[in-house]
């Protein structure tokens, strides 16, 4: 019947429009989500365009610290770095330079080994003992990243 056919067509058209509308809304939601995500990443990227401050000691030792809430205090002969992770001291006499970095490049690539005792910890905080020098520790330890501490300060080293 013509009338029945007409009703059916209208029903199908309405349904199609609803479906298109739903797809459009979903796409819009996706775009908004995407936008927020991009913005968040963008903000984060900008906020932390240089998320690290790298300190290089006279012996070439590099130490990187997060700049989040970072303050530096020069007290007598030492530099006290304080950030969200806590405070760390550096002997001023051993500091050569510092710079902002986009990556934690402060993982130790010690070039000038010094012959002095260092205490070594794993990244999880387990103490591995005291070595005569950094080079001795590097020769002894297995591959990985460790935290070492000597008179010049606390820093990371990588054993390859």
């Amino acid at each position: 019947m013509p009338s029945s056919s007409f009703s059916s067509r209208r029903f199908l058209q309405t349904r199609r429009r609803k479906k298109q509308r739903k797809q459009y809304d979903e796409m819009k939601k996706c775009l908004i989500f995407f936008a927020i995500a991009v913005c968040a990443l963008s903000v984060r990227a900008d906020e932390f365009a240089y998320p690290y401050l790298v300190l290089e000691a006279s012996d070439g030792t590099l130490t990187s610290v997060s700049v989040a809430s970072l303050t530096l205090k020069f007290e007598e002969s030492s530099l006290v770095l304080t950030n969200d992770a806590g405070s760390r001291n550096f002997a001023l006499s051993g500091l050569k330079k510092m710079y902002f970095a986009t990556k934690p490049t402060a993982i130790s690539t010690s070039k000038n080994n010094v012959n002095e005792n260092v205490e070594v910890w794993t990244m999880t905080g387990l103490s591995l003992g005291v070595f005569d020098s950094i080079s001795e520790a590097q020769q002894t330890l297995s591959r990985g990243v460790y935290v070492v501490k000597n008179e010049r300060g606390t820093f990371k080293i990588a054993v390859k």
Partner: peptide, 14 residues
């Protein structure tokens, strides 16, 4: 500015 600070040099710890 971090982007322009470059290398910041210590001299004699002073």
């Amino acid at each position: 500015p971090a982007a322009k600070a470059g290398v910041m040099t210590y001299t004699d710890g002073t």
